[in-house]
Simulated assay, not measured.
Amino acid sequence: MSKLKKQPNKSAAKGQIRIIAGQYRGRKLPVLMADGLRPTTDRVKETVFNWLMPYVQDAKCLDCFAGSGGLGFEALSRGAKSVTFIELNKAAAQQLTANKTLLKADNIDILSTNALEFLQKNQQEFSLVFIDPPFRKGLAQKTAEALSQQGLSENALIYVEMESDNNQQVMPSHWQLLKEKIAGQVVYQLYQNSKV
């Protein structure tokens, strides 16, 4: 009689992300592989940070749907002044905290909360924001609208990643589209806040 193999708990499965360049170049950080968590691929990340190269140094960053933290940790490695991670999934937020400890980084804040609620109460201004929400929930547009009310410094850069087949999501009219690329089912865009 064969023994039944115990199925691994999917919510606790671990993967990893790699920091591409900067202070922590080559470091691999464990990430939680939870439903809806889609770490940005190295290829996309490389393109995005090529776009951002002149702007990351000393940036005050906000990673709205942090997930694995791949974008925020990459920004930190490349000289961002600080990064605030917002992640609703408690286990994913705990993993971000563990990775903060691994990197011995004291310029990181991790908040396990709803990104939209955070933005409604937020009093800070950020110069670089990452919006990479779970797909098919219309969250990119809602987050952009909340962020455009408050939370952006003058000329702030906003990176948005969303599903390429959902072109109904509209960004604020005072955000100027600087770059756009499609990779498979994902469209990623870089905007600049031009609201005076």
Rank of each mutant, 00 (worst) to 15 (best):
G15C: 00
I131K: 14
A92Y: 12
L139Q: 12
K142G: 13
Q123P: 15
V129L: 06
G69N: 03
I19L: 05
F118N: 07
P172T: 05
R25G: 03
D35V: 01
L147I: 06
G69D: 02
K28W: 06
D58T: 14
K104W: 00
Y188F: 05
G22R: 12
D58N: 12
G15I: 00
V160A: 09
A21Y: 11
Y191I: 02
G36Q: 13
F135T: 11
R27L: 09
L62T: 01
Y188K: 01
F135G: 06
I158Q: 06
P134H: 14
S164F: 03
Q185I: 15
K137W: 08
A91N: 04
K5D: 01
L4N: 07
S127W: 14
A12K: 13
V44D: 00
K179T: 04
C61Y: 02
L4D: 05
K10M: 01
M53L: 04
I86K: 03
Y24L: 10
V186E: 01
A98C: 10
L190T: 10
F85C: 08
N114E: 15
W175S: 03
S148G: 12
R25V: 14
E161A: 04
A21L: 04
L32P: 00
E163C: 08
T113M: 15
A59C: 04
K45D: 06
K142F: 09
A93M: 01
P134A: 12
K104F: 02
V160H: 06
A156P: 09
K3D: 04
T84C: 01
